[in-house]
Design a protein around this nucleic acid. Structure first.
Lengths: 205, 205
DNA sequence: GCATGACCGGACAGGTTGTATGGTCCGGTC
DNA sequence: GACCGGACCATACAACCTGTCCGGTCATGC
């Protein structure tokens, strides 16, 4: 009997945004898999029906959050992809930017890393994301290879796409562990140094 | 009314083993998280009560399987840890042995990688496992460092424990992706070559 | 013969998901 | 001012799940 229109407190356009914001907020303290739809809608002040009107399930909400979070990721990687100069420096900066990105969106990214295996939609989304980063890395590596004979020599006989993918996934894992607070990666400096060492030694040294 | 003693078909000592075998078998076709206790006990021909008598839950069964599977892993790594000669070759062989191990136990290892985040027991188990491998790597690296001035120079200023942990986790991830059939890692040769390249370039080149 | 340990079916409380039903409010339109 | 449709809500539901508890059955050993 009480379909009182909610006070327009929340700025957002409507329930959809409110649900997204709520999940992002909840993920700060709880793990994605321990969160039930009931909890989300209670926290969001939204009815069950409305929730399912906007989203197919909690995975769909997470997927949207991930899409938004990772958008910024590509921009972070751009400098290294495009730069003409000093691979090492731009590389290190890119890695540090990645760390920053993960720090800002730790909850959401952690959630998808832990969940992509269990949901086809999330799986496709995350694999595509990683593929994009790998693509960017390949582009840059090939450019360096053509420009610098030393690099050319070092990478002789190496499967560059596979190497690029490996480095991308190594990043994923280490950033994730950092987000989980697993030592020694919880120390950002150590994380960035080590990851940089891996990339540099694999590609340029 | 029908507590007919099961035909002693299954060789095993008892239900416990039967449950373990059954889960390992089921994991070949199904994902751990989609498996319910009901399915496991049906397949094992065991009552619900018996199941909970032997195990606290399906996670506990998985934990036991993992413990057994990983035991062999340490043996696989031993040659590289102890060998006095040619790091590269023993390293490559160790990595290949790891690939073999993952191939034989793909289902179980895949399951734990996908589940350790969601269960404290599994988390501790897996982190401990990784720590053990990291320890072994550190031991060997430090030995090489003392023995070989070139290595000493290359690793100057490098956080060896962190590097060793990174390489360990990189292995975890790539083996896992291979087990999932994600290209290009589904090709064992590519996997081993790439992983070897990463280790060698990070440590010795 | 009888206690005991190993094992069963069945039932239960409490939690989960996704869907369906019917009703309330609002901002328009005629 | 009557009316409509869109946005939204509470509630109920079927179909699972999990862990726990119970009374009953069988084989063995004493």
């Amino acid at each position: 009997m009480t379909a009182r229109r909610n006070e327009p407190e929340q700025s957002g356009t409507g329930l959809r945004e409110r649900i997204l914001d709520t999940l992002r907020e909840l993920l700060r303290e709880r793990t994605f898999d321990t969160l039930s739809v009931a909890e989300i809608i209670t926290a969001a002040g939204v009815s069950r029906a409305s929730f399912y009107f906007y989203f197919a399930g909690k995975q769909a909400v997470l997927a949207e959050l991930v899409r938004r979070a990772v958008g910024a990721g590509h921009e972070a990687a751009q400098p290294w992809v495009q730069a003409k100069a000093s691979p090492r420096e731009t590389l290190r900066m890119g890695i540090d930017a990645g760390a920053g990105l993960w720090q800002s969106n730790a909850a959401v990214l952690r959630a998808i890393v832990e969940s992509w295996a269990s949901d086809p939609q999330l799986r496709e989304l995350w694999l595509a994301q990683m593929a994009t980063f790998t693509e960017a890395a390949i582009t840059r590596i090939e450019a360096d290879r053509r420009a610098d004979p030393t690099v050319q020599a070092r990478l002789d006989g190496v499967d560059v796409p596979a190497l690029a993918a490996s480095l991308t996934w190594t990043g994923e894992r280490l950033y994730y562990l950092a987000a989980c607070g697993v030592p020694p990666f919880d120390d950002r400096a150590v994380l960035v140094d080590t990851l940089t060492h891996l990339w540099v030694s694999a590609l340029y040294d």
